[in-house]
Amino acid sequence: MSSVRALVGLVFLEIYRKKDFYVALILMAVILVYASQIEVYNFENIVRYVREIGLMLIYLFSIFLAVPLAARQLAAERDQRTLAVLLAKPVTRGQFIVGKSLGAFLASLSAFLIFYSVFILVTLAKGKMGSPVNLIQAGYLFSLSLLVVTAMASALSYFLTSPAAMTLAFVFYFLMSLFGARFDRFAEESVGLARPLGKAVYYLLPHFEFFDLRQRVIHDWDPVSWGLIAIITAYAVLYTALFLFSGWLKFRRQPL
């Protein structure tokens, strides 16, 4: 566990020593503050579009931080020639995979929480923060999506090059976030190879739309049930474990 902890700490230092996070934070804050200052016909209390812009930026920036961070870990260690030194220490390959993936998740989660706090402050300043329960649920579920997407990007990086892993992770994430709910319909209406492919995508890829509660936050819908949150948590943990396990199967006997 201490090895995993040390690896997590290393990834943390990486994200906060590099420029990406600060660029994203500043850009997001500036856009959000700018958007919140817009008065339409001198109405000051219009907030839903601010929520929509804010959450979209937060989700996008967090994903754009998380995926490359996770997908680059193995490649960076190879390129920096630090991998051999690291694995010559009492660190198993499993610990390496878990530590790196968990590190990418926790680092991007911390970035997301900072973004989210800025978002909450901005909406609070508009006088309409919205339901705290909705905010907590939305933040929690998105955190789970970060867990799954970093595990996915990490696992892909053991099979593919880092850019390919990144690209595929982005494609899967946005494909399932935007169209995941509709893939079974697409499959049913398709012919030939598209039909089984569509079904395979629908049932095999993680459904990232499960983790997206933005509609409820933006439009002040009632929160979802905590039982559903528990089910989605189990779903996220299962996919994370599957991804990390597949990465371990590939990496465990790979000569370095």
């Binding site: 709910a181 079974d184 739309e209 499960f210 997206d212 439009h219 819908w221 779903y235």
Partner: peptide, 13 residues
């Protein structure tokens, strides 16, 4: 029965 669709419908208002 489609558990994925069920979850989708619970998530989306």
């Amino acid at each position: 029965p489609n558990w994925i669709r069920w979850i989708d419908r619970q998530i989306q208002a």
